[in-house]
Nucleic acid binder design. Structure first.
Lengths: 211, 211
DNA sequence: ACCTGAACACCGTTCAAGT
DNA sequence: ACCTGAACACCGTTCAAGT
């Protein structure tokens, strides 16, 4: 994961007490805890202790716990967006690339279920959801819109409002992801990727009886 | 607003100390708190105080906070199921009744967003989700399956596995509900019920370009 | 500017004890 | 059987103080 600082520092002064980038370390530790033990297991005290820093050092970089969670969610949307775009391009775009995006979306949600839950959880402030998340969340959504526009140009998909189409598609993959995470698919003895396959087929041709 | 402190000491029967049905009262108070101020505002201490009962009385009726939340979620699925069935029957079944179910589903989620979040949240134990919720959650799902089977018998919907069809439909309405609750529809200037209308149309006929 | 230690105002939960 | 009071082991957050 190549990551560069937004603002180039003048120098790499050793004026940080313990960390070159405590913010990033906090984010990483929070993400790992959530992944491994769930959101409820995330306490600021534990994260701080893990990094060998006092409980209150965190407040230099995040307004509060909710802000840390918002950053975690934001990072999740970034990862999701990148994964979606990669699938789309790697599987040669078109309807097949589109299918791959759907599979990737659900796989991401299932493999990072706790993280995914934070991305859509209630843990975030109203304002945070409107500002921080709008950008990254909107980015992942835009990947879908872009793909759909391309499919429309290839005359593969009906020329409805791309945003409306994207909402429809997003709803399907998100819904399947939630069913899978909640364990309802396993409970019904259904395989996740088979469910994705079926739903994407119905997405294409609808559910009405064809005479 | 609750400024009455002490409850008149002895009155009523010696049957129950304070409540005819403390369990029900706890559930109701929890539900109301969640609706009005969100899940995070729900504390066992506040609920107990509101009912004029000690903090620990609750443990006679629920194993822990998570069990209380599971009961709240369960109640939510019950309400949802009843609302869905009512819409279906009141709008004369068929494709129109089906449309009404979709609208009702999303309306329920939007109007009871905090409650809805609990129903799909991570706050619940694995075991609780498998047992308590399987019944009621499965019931709401079954309402969808039943409607689809009827539509199949009327030769309106293709004769695929009804469970698979129901998962597909459920995914769509749930996805729209989440988008709406997260404020992403408003952010895009979209009206919720219009989005539902469009998605149900696409659900019927698919998204492929028809030549 | 960045971090700490101690303190505050909460939590959920346990448990011996009361009726 | 049902409920209480006190206590325990935690939380997130604030703030004066240190470097």
């Amino acid at each position: 994961m190549a990551s560069k600082r937004l603002i180039p520092l003048k120098k790499k002064r050793a004026d940080h007490y313990h960390h070159g980038d405590l913010r990033k370390a906090l984010l990483g530790a929070a993400l790992r805890t959530i992944q491994e033990r769930g959101v409820d297991a995330l306490t600021l005290r534990a994260v701080s202790k893990e990094l060998g820093v006092s409980q209150t050092a965190l407040y230099r970089h995040f307004a509060d716990k909710s802000a840390l969670l918002a950053a975690v969610a934001r990072e999740g949307f970034r990862m999701l967006r990148l994964a979606l775009i990669e699938s789309w391009e790697q599987r040669g775009r078109g309807l097949e690339g589109f299918q791959a995006m759907g599979e990737t979306y659900v796989r991401f949600a299932v493999e990072s279920s706790s993280h995914y839950r934070v991305m859509f959880g209630a843990s975030l402030d109203e304002t945070e959801r409107d500002t921080e998340l709008e950008t990254e969340g909107g980015g992942a959504f835009q990947a879908l819109v872009d793909a759909l526009v391309e499919l429309q140009e290839s005359e593969l998909v009906r020329r409805d409002n791309p945003q409306a189409l994207a909402r429809h598609v997003w709803a399907i993959v998100h819904g399947i992801a939630m069913l899978a995470i909640d364990g309802r698919l396993k409970q019904q003895g259904a395989d996740v990727q088979e469910v994705v396959g079926y739903s994407l087929e119905r997405l294409r041709t609808g559910i009405l009886q064809t005479p």
